[in-house]
């Protein structure tokens, strides 16, 4: 087995790394990763963000939203928890979680945490879920991804994953709600970092894994995959085809500004800002800040102001941009 240390807290990078290992690097041995992220909600591959997330809470908590390539439901994670990844070369497409779960369960037991597996392939302690798993299977590889709660903020978890059941659409994979708990109750003197170090050491000792350090060339390719496949709002929110609304105007001092967007249930589901203006802004970051917000001036203008404060557009203020978004399309 190969162990690759992951120091990035950027979930887009870390999913880009997994994808890179499966599709470009293609090691012929299994690979083990253990990593953590800034506060993040992860959607399953075929879930609808607008069904699964309390987007007001996601915005208020400034959480990162990402879509996994694996199946299953939505999870919340932060630096109080961690993710494990096992990428195994295989041509056997039959679904099987057991080998990965046995490895992690044995390592947890080794460090004094009495976790067991349940029928949904979750890890539980005294009946409460501490870890969920999902997989992504290609013709050559099986990726087993799992999340572990050690000292995660369960109040944030509850707030962001609480949605109105009436909103749930028929077409899409639904999450299964379960009682969750933190593993720290089992080892109260450990920090989350200490937990990760001990778990990693236990896995490495059990597998006799050797370490591979990512090179600058690896990182360059990972960055491209992360941006294209995981950080792009169209991938996260599954925007397809044309935008519903396109407003553009020449603004003296700023240049031609065009904003295209789509709405669902009076919320922004996609947004693209373009034009010949001068700015260092990243359109994907800008879009992610606004997607999910209620389509009212009161909700949008502060979000636009926040983005423009971080990455200004020469000659454009938030009120003018808000006017453009809400302008009557007939008024040119």
């Amino acid at each position: 087995m190969i162990y690759i240390p992951v120091t990035s807290l950027d979930v887009y990078h870390n999913f880009g790394l997994e994808y890179y290992l499966m599709t470009v690097k293609k090691f012929t041995e299994p690979v083990f990763l253990l990593w953590t992220t800034t506060p993040t909600v992860m959607l399953g591959k075929y879930q609808n963000a607008f069904d699964q997330l309390n987007l007001d809470a996601v915005k208020a908590q400034q959480l990162t939203v990402v879509r996994r390539y694996s199946g299953g439901g939505t999870i919340y994670t932060d630096q109080g928890g961690c993710q494990f990844t096992l990428i195994t070369p295989t041509t056997n497409a039959t679904i099987d979680f057991s080998s990965g779960l046995e490895l992690i369960t044995a390592a947890l037991n080794q460090i004094g945490i009495a976790a067991t597996t349940d029928s949904r392939n979750d890890l539980v302690v005294a009946g409460a879920k501490v870890s969920g798993s999902a997989q992504y299977v290609t013709p050559g590889y099986k990726l087993h991804h799992g999340s572990l709660l050690f000292a995660s903020d369960l109040a944030v978890l509850a707030a962001v994953l609480q949605v109105d059941p009436l909103k749930l659409q028929a077409k899409g994979v639904q999450s299964v709600r379960q009682r969750t708990t933190n593993l720290q109750a089992q080892q109260p003197t450990w920090t989350a970092t200490e937990f990760r170090q001990r778990l990693t050491a236990a896995v490495l000792a059990a597998t006799h894994a050797h370490t591979y350090q990512l090179t600058a060339a690896d990182e360059a390719q990972i960055a491209v995959l992360a941006a294209q496949r995981f950080a792009a709002p169209a991938k996260i929110y599954r925007q397809r085809g044309a935008f519903q609304y396109t407003h553009k105007r020449y603004i003296t001092g700023a240049g031609l500004i065009q904003v295209a967007y789509s709405l669902a249930e009076q919320r922004v589901t996609a947004l693209e800002l373009s034009g010949d203006f001068f700015s260092a802004l990243d359109p994907a970051v800008f879009a992610r800040a606004v997607i999910g917000a209620k389509f009212t001036r009161a909700a949008l203008q502060p979000l636009l102001a926040q983005q423009l404060a971080q990455t200004p557009i020469v000659g454009l203020d938030a009120a003018t941009l808000t006017d453009l978004i809400f302008q009557d399309p007939a008024a040119k």
């Binding site: 591959k45 199946g71 299953g72 679904i95 392939n121």
Partner: peptide, 11 residues
């Protein structure tokens, strides 16, 4: 692709 039992599989 299909999904079942929390697994996305390419066919």
């Amino acid at each position: 692709e299909v999904e079942t039992d929390k697994v996305v599989s390419q066919v």
